[in-house]
Design a binder for these strands. Structure first.
Lengths: 238, 238
DNA sequence: AAACGTTATATGTCATACATTTAACGTATC
DNA sequence: GATACGTTAAATGTATGACATATAACGTTT
């Protein structure tokens, strides 16, 4: 047979999108830089404004740029953050591609590791923050502040593990569990009594990796059991 | 002070985007369904075609729909997959937000867990696939096939862990390590000699969770050491 | 110096026309 | 009847011009 390949008619807007995307990835534009204005892009690419606008709109939806209006406006390259991962995880859950149980199990496996790494890298400043957060855990019982206060420790530990990938994954899971469970506003003191984090913090501050892992695992087992059955409820109220 | 909030002028295209997004998330449109045509959306939202098109373009960039041209064309709701996570991980690496070392370390922590879970859920069919893949590992030394063959086992194990989140994360890491390292086409038999997976497979098929974890950890330590320094090279050749 | 209006330069929206892609239907040809 | 071919219809893709709106910067008045 012949080796002819099917002609791929690339849409002009996609082509512009790709070239701009490449330019950003290659570092020709870095975070904070302004892309050329629509008028300039029209000239350089020799296409209509429609095409340029749709390309930029795609960049925005992809989270690569933010668009500002006005005299000093334009498309500015965004500082890429790990929030994208979180937002994707959210999408996947809400589209039913992940069960609450899977999220919890994943967290049960990953967060102890993170806690161990946090213990390994704990500095006096970190210790201070942890103790502060721990002391403030019971300040209020109002939603959604209470959820934030009770999970603060987890976020701090995530930031301490010295691995941005694990930090991002862990935070996504924490955030997801939080947002799903707080949808029901269960009695906070019941599903997450104050003082649950004591042993974790002690181990982390002591630099005891294995102890921190162990303590986190035990904590999650306690906590997640109390949340059991919450997904059933969730899927039904939608 | 007063409690006035700044007026947030929502762009029409964003509003349309959000409403369509919500409709998809709420299940009003599920995978494979066709959104209303541009003409219909124009009527329902009472906006111009520009606005509708930019909204749909955003949905496409977000990976929620695919757009087909022609008589039976339109915007079709996409089956949401975990590929999005992989693609985002790629972006983050190429934008310098993750180091190769962080990726390797994350993999070193996560993949043993996955291997353990795989051992827990291993069926005879799984065993067959693993043995097959293992036998085919040295079929070729040509890039990029060789990379695929040597990592096949890892992908299989990822699929066996019964947790779609961990599967997705693990695959992202595997794929990322593979694509970065194969950029240099190092001698495959040197950095990843055949037979490295034997002990892992034995443990998994035996259903030995702890053994599988251990074997995977040992394998990764061996393998990743051989890849050391590859990032330096990479960042310089860009 | 502060308040205010003007202006310039972006992006945002609308409307219309035409181009292109694609499936489906009909029709001639063999 | 099957195949090839042209026609048509319905959708998205692109081009263009006009006007709306947002925003910073400059000038002018007070």
């Amino acid at each position: 047979m012949n080796n002819f390949k099917p002609i791929k008619q690339i849409k002009a807007s996609d082509e512009v999108f790709n070239q701009l995307r490449e330019a950003i990835f290659s570092g020709r534009f870095s975070a904070g830089d302004k892309l050329p204005s629509e008028r300039e892009l029209i000239e350089k690419f020799a296409v209509s404004r429609t095409v340029v606008r749709e390309a930029i709109k795609s960049l925005e939806a992809r989270g690569l740029v933010v668009i500002k209006q006005g005299a000093t406006g334009g498309a500015f390259v965004k500082e890429m953050t790990f929030d994208r991962l979180s937002s994707d995880c959210n999408d996947l859950f809400f589209l039913g591609k992940m069960s609450f149980n899977e999220i919890c199990q994943a967290r049960l496996h990953i967060e102890p590791i993170v806690a161990g790494l946090a213990a390994k890298h704990c500095t006096p400043e970190h210790a201070k923050l942890l103790l502060e957060a721990n002391a403030n855990e019971s300040l209020t019982l109002e939603y959604p502040e209470t959820v934030m206060l009770r999970s603060k420790i987890h976020y701090l530990l995530a930031d301490m593990c010295n691995n941005r990938f694990l930090t991002a994954i862990d935070k996504s899971l924490i955030q997801l569990v939080g947002s799903i469970s707080s949808h029901f506003q269960p009695d906070t003191d019941k599903i997450h009594p104050p003082g649950m984090h004591h042993s974790i913090i002690d181990a982390v501050i002591a630099g005891d990796e294995a102890g921190a892992e162990q303590a986190m695992r035990a904590h999650l087992l306690d906590f997640l059991v109390l949340l059991d059955g919450i997904e059933e409820e969730y899927r039904h109220t939608q």
